[in-house]
Design a protein around this nucleic acid. Sequence first.
DNA 1: GTGTTTTTAAGAATATTATTCGTTTTTAAA
DNA 2: TTTAAAAACGAATAATATTCTTAAAAACAC
Lengths: 156, 156
Amino acid sequence: MVQTDTVLNDVDKAILRLMQDDARITNVAISKKLKMAPSAVLERVRKLEERGIIRGYTANLDPAALNKELLAFIFIKSADGFGCDTSAKAFAAIPEVQEVHNIAGDDCYLVKVRVANTQALMELRRKRFSKIANILSMRTTIVMETVKETQTISIT
Amino acid sequence: MVQTDTVLNDVDKAILRLMQDDARITNVAISKKLKMAPSAVLERVRKLEERGIIRGYTANLDPAALNKELLAFIFIKSADGFGCDTSAKAFAAIPEVQEVHNIAGDDCYLVKVRVANTQALMELRRKRFSKIANILSMRTTIVMETVKETQTISIT
DNA sequence: GTGTTTTTAAGAATATTATTCGTTTTTAAA
DNA sequence: TTTAAAAACGAATAATATTCTTAAAAACAC
């Protein structure tokens, strides 16, 4: 076997670009754009899924329509030791938590949360975060306006 | 007309949950889960798209496979006036920039970027950010480990 | 309450797409 | 070259999407 495990060829990249842009694009549409047979495209997509390069597909929803208009970033200092994810896992288990990152510098976590309003944010802190052990401190930064918000990876 | 513009009923919410979880779920599969006719589901999905509640569909890709393993948050102070998005728009136009938020407090932006490595990050700063006017200062925070990263909105 | 309008769902028919699988072509290594 | 493996093709079939007509339900006015 060659370097199949890690390397993507141009066809794979083209497929990924198309599906990143519109995950509900049909197989036939991809095959037309790439001038290939649908069966060949399908096999590639399957392999990209199997290899874990495509992790899944998701719909992008309007937060306002779902009454989740408040976005905030919370910096959390924790007493977790190195390589210990205990509190991080606890953060991740909260549905309103969209992201949990271990950031360099302050041995602290950066947590992104999306809730209805400031009251809901307070409640989240009180009812969920305060129950999590090891937290030393929390600093919350509220987003006033989001200009761009994607998960899109630039495929080169 | 009633409050159709803003309110979602239980069927809509169920559809949104399913599609947020797997955007490539078939219409038929949704209709079976919801015990409805496929045509009825299709009409609802169409309306959710038209109303802008569903903004689009995207594939979640493995950053490592695409050689974009470094995630960083950059706090940028800018001389932009209130309600002036000039530099924010410029940030948003950079493909490696996934998010741009105007955050409260320091009249500054929080920008999330995904690149290959620290060298690529330096190059991005030098070649792209330095060309953008109005920037007063930048502080970069590198992510060491990501525990959770979704755009999923909890639908209640 | 009744009648009316509007919205929503259903069902059947058709168009489109997904999927399978045997064959051919291409690729890459010996 | 020769050969083996991988990739693409193409045709046949299964499944799904989509359209459109009709029926049911909900909302509204009176």
